[in-house]
């Protein structure tokens, strides 16, 4: 049953993709490998891999006000300026977190994700629990991620689809005024660009 593939969540299902799925499903069924182990492997290798692109975008936006403006106006274009592409013709919209507004991203129907800039989606992003609860109880979900927001902060939840993918521009932490763009890149973690975490202030230099 692939009904939901017709409602804007169309994915290219090419032969290689289908064969990969088939191969994985057979090997898992036979107990030769487990989905969790594959997840762990992918996570280990991509950890400091995929999200780097997004971190560069964020650091540029923090240090270059003109770029920040272009990024918020047309994410796809501004991200392309740094040499990164959108996923198969989908647009990337960048949402700015501020002290008053907190944005978080979900894909309620499957797991659309801006993978060219954030790498592969984390396992929890694809989980039924996150997909269903992010919209209904965003604050509870955020607090499970360790993020407690003040009641006065407005939480906006954005549902991705194959045409539009969202990336969050997190707030620049205090105490980073003297840091270079390159140093800032190292601070930006994936979860902050999905909007389930803030970026902590770096420990003061000794």
């Amino acid at each position: 049953m692939s009904g939901h593939h017709d409602d804007g969540h169309t994915h290219e299902q090419n032969e290689a993709e289908l064969r990969t799925k088939a191969l994985e499903s057979l090997l898992v069924e036979k107990g030769i490998v487990s989905t969790d182990v594959i997840d762990d492997v992918v996570r280990a290798y991509e950890q400091d891999i995929g999200p780097m692109n997004g971190a560069k975008v964020v650091a540029r936006a923090w240090t270059d006000p003109d770029y920040r403006e272009r990024l918020l106006k047309d994410g796809t274009m501004a991200i392309a300026e740094l040499g990164f592409q959108g996923a198969q013709g989908s647009e990337i919209v960048v949402l700015e977190n501020t002290p008053e507004t907190h944005n978080m991203v979900v894909c309620t129907l499957c797991s659309c994700y801006p993978w060219p800039i954030l790498g592969l989606p984390p396992t929890w992003y694809k989980s039924e629990a996150y997909r269903s609860r992010a919209v209904i109880q965003p604050r509870a979900v955020l607090s499970e991620f360790g993020l407690e927001l003040d009641e006065s902060v407005e939480v906006r939840v954005w549902d991705s689809n194959s045409d539009v993918r969202y990336m969050v521009l997190p707030e620049r932490p205090e105490g980073t005024e003297a840091m270079s763009e390159e140093e800032l890149v190292g601070l930006v973690k994936r979860d902050s660009m999905i909007g389930v975490a803030k970026i902590p202030s770096p420990a003061p230099a000794v």
């Binding site: 994985e24 090997l27 594959i38 290798y45 991509e46």
Partner: peptide, 26 residues
Amino acid sequence: NGELVFEAPWEGRAFGLAVALNEGGA
């Protein structure tokens, strides 16, 4: 730029599968 590139999620999956099978001793 030094980072692994997957053109689509299935590529990452295929990557992980090959590495996991090796780690499992296949």
